[in-house]
């Protein structure tokens, strides 16, 4: 299985048969292994979190302990240091928690052997591809961050405009993109400030887009590279066994155990990377929200 085709096939998504349409020359998949994995993650998250909430008590026990540990981690280690104010933290915490659990779930589902199981049972990879290893899904996640920070930044700018000038909030909302764009530039006194205001605002805006782009690339590259490395190591084992049967080569006796050991170690590393990338994505999103929504720099 591993030896067939490109090694990248192992980490790429496979659409379900007949689940693709072409609109204006653009291919659109409405059901694939990655989409099925995402749906599974969503269902598991809903069941686990709603169940833990249903049995919640002031003194935590069972699953509530685990869920609350992660929630407290996101609140104290991600939202609080990045968002500074209590009001902002309360506002964005549900968004950050959902993002963290969603990405973590998508990263972890790729570590389960669902891919091979579905291929064994149905002859196709219907489920189990790591969604965060798919570039367009990471682009969607990064877009969520970008849209959130622009929308919330504009709302904040409109609110500030309304508070400072006393003019209607509707006018503030209409002008909010322009107000937010202007507020991106740092305040420099004198003629230099006037000259540099808009170039700096443009640079800041490009910086915001670049930061979200880096979020996409970082997540996709880290998750895909781990899977590719794991696949390469496991392919060594398969190749060694194939050579042993075909050419009576003896190197399988030392290559095989080494590859198994390394694949276990890389599997553990992947587990760490899955948690780490979820944390990094959420933390950077929180930092960008703190940076661009407050607009005090």
């Amino acid at each position: 299985m591993l030896a067939e085709g490109s090694i990248l096939d192992h980490v790429s998504d496979s659409p379900w048969p007949g689940c693709q349409i072409v609109i204006a020359g653009m291919r659109i998949t409405w059901m694939s292994s990655a989409i099925a994995s995402m749906l599974l993650v969503a269902v598991v998250l809903c069941v686990v979190l709603l169940l833990s909430r249903r049995r919640a008590s002031v003194v935590p026990h069972g699953m509530q302990n685990a869920v609350e540990a992660v929630v407290v981690f996101v609140r104290d280690m991600v939202a609080r240091p990045a968002l500074h104010s209590r009001e902002k933290m309360d506002r964005f915490l549900p968004f950050l928690l959902t993002l963290f659990f969603y990405i973590l779930g998508m990263n972890l589902i790729g570590l389960l052997p669902l891919n091979g199981m579905s291929e064994f049972l149905f002859g196709r990879r219907l489920l189990g591809v790591t969604p965060t290893g798919v570039l367009t899904i990471c682009a969607a996640l990064a877009s969520i961050t970008l849209v959130t920070l622009i929308v919330c930044g504009c709302r904040q700018a409109a609110r500030r405009y309304h508070e400072n000038t006393g003019r209607p909030i509707a006018l503030g909302l209409v002008l909010s993109p322009w107000l937010w764009f202007r507020s991106l530039s740092p305040r420099i006194p004198g003629a230099t400030g006037i000259i540099l205001r808009y170039p700096l605002a443009i640079l800041e805006f490009i910086g915001a887009i670049a930061k979200c782009f880096s979020l996409m690339v970082r997540l996709a590259a880290n998750i895909a590279s781990g899977h590719i490395l794991l696949a390469v190591i496991m392919m060594f084992t398969v190749d060694a066994f194939t050579a042993a049967f075909r050419d009576q080569a003896t190197h399988v006796f030392y290559v095989g155990p080494l590859c198994v050991l390394f694949s276990v170690l890389v599997g553990l590393l992947e587990l760490l990377v899955a948690c780490l990338q979820a944390y990094i994505f959420t933390f950077l999103t929180a930092i960008f929200l703190g940076l661009y929504v407050e607009s005090e720099h």
């Binding site: 790429s12 653009m26 749906l39 969503a42 998250l45 909430r53 570039l135 367009t136």
Partner: peptide, 26 residues
């Protein structure tokens, strides 16, 4: 190798929106 298309992106966004709605509320 197939890196995904707009369908996966829309699905990811819709599922995220659904999760944000359900989890945020309940």
């Amino acid at each position: 190798p197939y890196p995904g298309d707009l369908g996966q992106a829309i699905a990811a966004l819709l599922i995220f929106a659904g999760l944000l709605f359900v989890l945020g509320k309940w």
